[in-house]
Design a protein around this nucleic acid. Structure first.
Lengths: 212, 212
DNA sequence: TAGATTGTTAATCGATTAACAATC
DNA sequence: TAGATTGTTAATCGATTAACAATC
């Protein structure tokens, strides 16, 4: 797995390759050409070959790519076999949706703790995971290995919470707030999901061309 | 508002400009230079000026950009003043989180209907909006103008639902499913949110560099 | 073998950054 | 006026696409 700086554009496409390869596998397709994969992905055969070649020669000339092998390689490349432990902070609407609605086991990720500041919901469970007092965060993390934190809290609470997490050695974040984690902690690894930004982009696109 | 094809990269940054300009306005800052804005946005002054100039000369040499004016221009550019009417399909975890947790009025968007196929929740409300039987979709849309649909349903239901919506003349989608709307309807305007893809990208980044 | 299809290099395209004259 | 800062053009950088020799 030669890892000489893969661009973010390539990485962002990997989950899509993974999804489509899973579908092909389910349909008992055992090989696929870059052309066919490109068609499914709505891109070019060139891009498919360039992308996959970042990680090694998984294809065979005249044959294409073996579906299952390639799928398994992408699992390893993405690290879906790593069994990451996650904690979720903020059991509000979005936090609950994430914890209850997503299939993390498919990605080798496990939510091991859920925290909130609202004492009315302490002890409630989401998917059999108890909601704990955010004040017990430090003691929990000292006893339970944690790889990544999902931030589903109001923006006002974010700076303080991230500081506490960072001080506990947690540097990986899935951030649903508008707090700029990387601005404050340049070595943090962050994926931001700014739903309202995406909604506004959609507003633009709906509006586009309709201006005179 | 000269609209000769603005690139998607620029559009995706507009909501961030908007957010930071709102913050500046709240702090009673009345002007800002491209350099200062770049610092806040963690980009370059060059990019800020290039971006803003796509839409016209909002700045003044030697002075910078007037915060409130610029903010209001971006509202118009994004179309946050259009009062779009949305319907939400699927009142499960993510649908509920979207309907209950987001501040759409800030973006000039209003959810006017929520639909689901589960008769156990018909009549329940989210933010005072009643959950209706998906079978009443057609009659509802014929009586109520609808600009955009939020798709928060399982993938299996997506193809059929999108077909019904498309046939009702709805071509704008906020898509939380993995169904490929544009593949099927090339003239549809779609923003996809693939949360599991983002999570996998984060897995990669957490994994990165840790491979020998 | 002939046909298919890869891996990889070269060409193109687009986005970002730098530079600087214009001007408030 | 001098200093600041824009608007805009040119240079650079990166990502995508095209082309083709290698080879299964």
């Amino acid at each position: 797995m030669s890892n000489n700086r893969i661009s973010k554009s390539v990485i962002r496409r990997l989950p899509r390759y993974y999804r489509f390869l899973c579908e092909l596998e389910e349909n008992d397709v055992d090989r696929v050409s870059s052309g066919k994969l490109a068609e499914i992905m709505r891109t070019t055969a060139s891009q498919v070959r360039q992308d996959l070649n970042c990680f090694g020669g998984f294809g065979h000339q005249g044959y294409g790519y073996p579906v299952t092998t390639l799928k398994n390689e992408i699992i390893k490349i993405l690290g879906l076999n790593k069994n990451y432990k996650a904690i979720l902070i903020g059991a509000g609407h979005i936090g609950t949706a994430i914890a209850a609605g997503m299939n993390f086991s498919k990605m080798g990720v496990e939510i091991v703790g859920i925290f909130d500041s609202n004492n009315k919901i302490f002890g409630n469970t989401i998917n059999n995971i108890e909601i704990k007092d955010i004040n017990t965060l430090e003691s929990f993390c000292k006893e339970n290995h944690t790889d990544v934190a999902f931030l589903c809290i109001p923006k006002e609470a974010a700076a303080d919470t991230v500081k506490r997490l960072y001080n506990l050695g947690i540097k990986n974040f899935w951030n649903f707030t508008h707090y700029d984690i990387v601005g404050e902690y340049p070595d943090a690894i962050v994926e931001n999901v700014h739903l309202s930004d995406i909604m506004m982009t959609l507003c633009y696109c709906m509006n586009e061309g309709k201006n005179e």
